[in-house]
């Protein structure tokens, strides 16, 4: 299995507004292979979102390397970085915040397709919308994000990511913004995309049940470090680390 993304010894420190230094990510190494789904599990403040942003090239780490297909993201010239980074697309927790409120659906998709030099006609945009279950696509083109429901917005964000024909989708809590009844729809959509397009996922989540249902491999993050990593079946059923055990025990179970 070819490696798509490799983080090697990544460390990143923030300065808080008070002036105190916080090491959000400490010497983390993680790989995601072709068509593989890796869940990065941890609580808020564990550094998992920061790690996701580092992988997307949105944050430059203080130390360590971020390799896309073997090349360090931060050694690339601007032009090359812009060309290479489109292979990794984000899906954020809050679809509302991830869509420019002043652009219509058509505008948002056109912008993405154009970057790939693929915006040829309306048909392509409609096809994208329908591939994420927004049917008929033509119905949505004129709308603004705020005129869509929460579930539809998340689908639109996914459609925009797909417009770039990515090889890896880095999804940061893609379901916490969605209602319980919409979760199944979004999860199935992500599964379908994976099956149809052979995509890899880095799924950043605090929700163990999502990791359990979705991931091939699980990495557990705590205080900026990966404390346990392995096949999903093993980590989530026979955890070695105390922290993983506590995390699993804290999830409210349906008692009946």
């Amino acid at each position: 299995m070819a490696t798509l993304l490799a983080l090697q010894g990544v460390t990143h420190t923030f300065r808080r507004s008070g002036g105190a230094l916080v090491t959000a990510v400490r010497d983390v190494s993680l790989e995601v292979g072709e068509s593989e789904t890796v869940a990065l599990v941890g609580e808020s403040g564990s550094g998992k979102s920061t790690l996701g942003r580092i992988a997307l090239g949105l944050i430059r780490p203080d130390a360590g390397r971020v390799l896309i297909a073997g090349k360090n993201l931060h050694d690339m010239a601007n032009r090359e970085l812009r060309r290479e980074r489109i292979a990794f697309q984000p899906i954020f927790q809050d679809a509302t915040a991830s869509l420019n409120p002043r652009r219509t659906v058509r505008d948002l998709l056109r912008q993405a397709l154009r970057q790939r030099g693929a915006d040829r006609n309306e048909h392509m945009r409609i096809e994208l919308l329908e591939s994420v279950g927004l049917r008929p696509g033509s119905l949505y083109l004129e709308r603004y994000p705020h005129e869509l429901s929460g579930g539809q917005r998340q689908r639109l964000a996914i459609a925009r990511a797909l417009a770039m024909k990515p090889r890896l989708i880095i999804a940061d809590e893609p379901l916490s913004g969605a209602d319980v009844s919409m979760r199944g729809q979004v999860l199935n959509l992500l599964l379908d995309i994976k099956k149809e397009r052979g995509l890899a996922y880095l799924m950043i989540t605090h929700d163990i049940s999502i990791a359990r249902a979705f991931a091939d491999r699980v990495a557990v993050m705590k205080e900026g470090q990966i404390v346990e990593e392995g096949p999903a079946g093993v980590v989530l059923s026979k955890p070695r680390e105390d922290y993983t055990k506590r995390l699993l025990a804290a999830v409210p179970q349906l008692a009946y």
């Binding site: 942003r53 997307l56 090239g57 949105l58 601007n78 812009r82 060309r83 980074r85 489109i86 990794f88 697309q89 984000p90 954020f92 809050d94 915040a97 991830s98 869509l99 420019n100 409120p101 912008q111 993405a112 970057q115 964000a157 925009r160 770039m164």
Partner: peptide, 22 residues
């Protein structure tokens, strides 16, 4: 700092264009 700007950055849009259009 908003996410939609990051999302557009991930599309490979140039920084001055992001500033002007987003």
């Amino acid at each position: 700092g908003l996410e939609f700007v990051d999302a557009v950055r991930c599309l490979g849009v140039r920084e001055p264009v992001i500033l002007a259009t987003e």
